[in-house]
Simulated scan of single mutants.
Amino acid sequence: MTLTERLIAPGATRGEAVLSFGTAFAGGALSVALASTAGLPPLALVVIAVVAFDLYGGAVVNATRAAKLWFHRQGRTRVHHVGFVAIHVQPFVLAWAVPGFTWTAAAAIYASVLVAALAVTAVPLPLRRPAAFAATALALVWTTAMVAVPGVLAWVAPLLLIKLLLAHLLPEEAAG
């Protein structure tokens, strides 16, 4: 399996790879540039770079046809999808490394995403898309208005929600 197949999905096209990696690198650079204005320590900037690369790139990767076909292939269940969401512990990594990103904020963001994923995967497949948008809209308001994080990291919760609820949990639809 190639690196592109591992990081995107088997069968990823050149265009999907360019968009995914381009967005990951651009988002990482943008986020580090923004965070560097806050006088954060070097370890925090490295962690932010890695998290940003994953979240920006992952939002695009999970929206690709190749990834949707791979993650929603025969035999994949709700447990697989919610498990994928559950392993995204980036808010806790940020709380560990970034001054001002509290453990409480990390827990609130993580719980919001996980509860939303459980709700989305609990509805019948024909309702999954509108349920994902509803859950994302509600969780976006909660995580951006009610959960305090450093301003230079205000992108974390929205990108995590986009990557996991709107991109990952929604299967590929047939072209109409």
Results as ranks from 00 to 15, higher is better:
A116Q: 00
A35R: 05
L138C: 03
L3F: 13
G151N: 13
A157W: 01
F53V: 15
D54T: 00
H80L: 14
W142T: 08
A86S: 14
L161F: 13
L45D: 01
A131Y: 14
G58S: 03
T121V: 15
Y110K: 01
L94C: 08
A105V: 06
G22I: 12
A24Q: 04
A134N: 15
A95R: 01
A132V: 04
A44S: 08
A12K: 02
K68I: 13
R76Q: 12
P158G: 10
P99M: 12
H81A: 11
R76W: 10
A111C: 14
A12F: 15
A111F: 13
A108N: 13
A67C: 08
A49V: 01
L45G: 04
I48R: 09
Q90G: 00
G100C: 06
V93T: 02
L43K: 02
A148E: 15
T102I: 04
V50T: 10
T102W: 09
A105Y: 08
L118T: 14
Q74C: 07
A44Y: 05
V152T: 09
G75R: 01
T143N: 05
P124C: 11
K163V: 07
A49S: 11
G83E: 11
V141Q: 02
R129A: 12
T104E: 12
A9V: 02
R65N: 14
